[in-house]
Simulated assay, not measured.
Amino acid sequence: MNKLPKGVDQLPSGKYRVRKMINGRRQSLLFDAPPTQKDVLLATNELLNEVPGATLKGTFLDYAEKYIKAKENVLSASTIRGYRATLKGIPGHFTSLPLKDITQYTLTALVNDMVRSVSPKTVYNRHGLIVSVLHEFRPDFVIRTKLPRKAQKDIYTPGDEEVSILFAYLEDSPTLKKYWIPLYLASLGLRRSEIGALSIADLSEDDILTINKAKVLGSDNKWVIQNFTKTERSNRKIPLPKELADRIRQQGFIYQGDLNSIFCIMTAAQKKLGLPHFGVHRLRSYFASKAHALGLHDSIILKLGGWKSDHIMKGIYRKALQEDLHEESKTFLDHMTKQVVNKE
């Protein structure tokens, strides 16, 4: 019986086996006859071509486009538009790299380069898209990138006084009165995209407003109405005050026009009235904080506002409560200071 070459074993089945470490994994190569060194080399190269990532031929940009294309019918038009804008912002020296050659060091170097020119939020968005593409086409690639700390923005949430002043101003202006209804709906917890998609047909005879679609900008920068909202929980029915429902019926529509105009009108009105700046979405925050302050249960606030989870919702009204606490603390400390000064 001939002695087998070193590293070759004969199995009970009669096959001949060679064990090799290939890309960090122990693989078994099987042969019908005792293999030569050339046989082992050819089998090893063949197996290398079957390792995930080895057959990837295109650049990161090629696969990112493929990834976005595959999502077009399942994600909202605005999300796809955001993906394309994010992809466009990723530096060309990275997007031109072969996907199979991207390593953790490549990602770390990219993030280190981007933090010099863009905000932490932009870095997060770009890195998030990169990770999604890599997970799709290189699922075994474990990513552990250290990202910059996000900046905490101090976003102003309006109170009763600012909201009342704004609505009174719109009410008294013949040219701005058409913005009263959409902005009032925002103060009841509706998103701008939801308001823009509403029609008079969405209001029932018993004053129930059905929210089940959204108006968003597509990749071609044109407004489209999609037959779904931001999240599954955003589909909801809201009972409107009779006065508001009657006003909508009298007007004959909820809002007609470019959604960006609402923000522009609000900004101009706030400057004229000397109000702090807050956008349409801050009226939604006002709704959450006001509802909580009035004792409405969190589950009801969550349902009326269409939030996916109570984590974001609670963060909104906690922010408003902190602002109230700041004002109350300031008033108290001013009072204490006056007491001390008067005693002296």
Rank of each mutant, 00 (worst) to 15 (best):
M1I: 03
M1S: 12
D9Y: 15
R19V: 14
N23V: 03
R26G: 01
P34F: 05
E46P: 01
L47T: 06
A54L: 06
L61H: 13
L61D: 15
E65I: 06
A77H: 12
S78K: 14
R81V: 02
A85C: 06
K88T: 09
M114Y: 04
S117M: 03
H127M: 04
L129W: 11
R144F: 09
T145G: 02
L147T: 12
P148T: 10
R149F: 04
K153I: 06
G159L: 00
Y169T: 07
L170P: 02
E171L: 13
P174R: 09
A186K: 08
A186W: 07
A201C: 02
T210A: 09
K213H: 11
I225C: 09
T231N: 12
N235S: 12
N235R: 14
P241N: 09
E243T: 11
R247S: 12
Q250L: 15
D258A: 08
S261L: 06
C264G: 05
F278N: 08
H281K: 10
R282K: 15
L283E: 07
R284M: 05
F287A: 09
A291W: 08
H297R: 12
G306M: 08
W307P: 07
D310P: 01
H311Y: 05
Y317Q: 07
L321Q: 12
E323C: 01
T331A: 14
M336N: 08
Q339A: 10
